[in-house]
């Protein structure tokens, strides 16, 4: 007799999959942490920021947010570390730093 190939798991079983993988609600991506894909992390020097908003505009995810003071910062829950914000910043206010370094 072959040994049971199934491993115990708390994840959904095939019977629990949504029909057509269509979710009966919106905004599921909000819950999904893409921050752990990152190798480099953006560090913002707010003193150099001129509040032009280019980083907010160019960020391909929803991770650049405006602070109360009007400057910008990165929400690391979503930031994948692509570095576009650092590249586009006209004042070099954003530096990419290796995670764990």
């Amino acid at each position: 007799m072959a040994k049971n190939q199934v491993r115990p798991s708390a994840l959904p079983k095939w019977q629990d999959c949504e029909f057509g993988n269509i979710l009966p609600y919106a905004g599921g991506a909000k819950e999904y942490k893409t921050g752990d894909w990152r190798t480099d992390r953006p560090i913002v020097d707010a003193s150099k920021c001129i509040k032009c908003g280019m980083c907010w505009l160019m960020c391909p995810d929803a991770c650049i947010v405006q602070t109360e003071g009007g400057t910008y910062d990165a929400n690391l829950f979503y930031c994948k570390g692509c570095g576009i914000c650092a590249q586009i910043c006209p004042k070099d206010a954003i530096t990419m730093v290796e995670e764990g370094a």
């Binding site: 994840l11 095939w14 019977q15 999959c17 269509i22 919106a26 905004g27 599921g28």
Partner: peptide
């Protein structure tokens, strides 16, 4: 609202495809 075209990570894709086949 409903969400069509959702991501299927390696931890769910296998189950989703089996349910489609069945």
């Amino acid at each position: 609202p409903t969400s069509h075209g959702c991501f299927g990570l390696p931890d769910i894709y296998t189950e989703v495809k089996y349910s489609q086949e069945l």
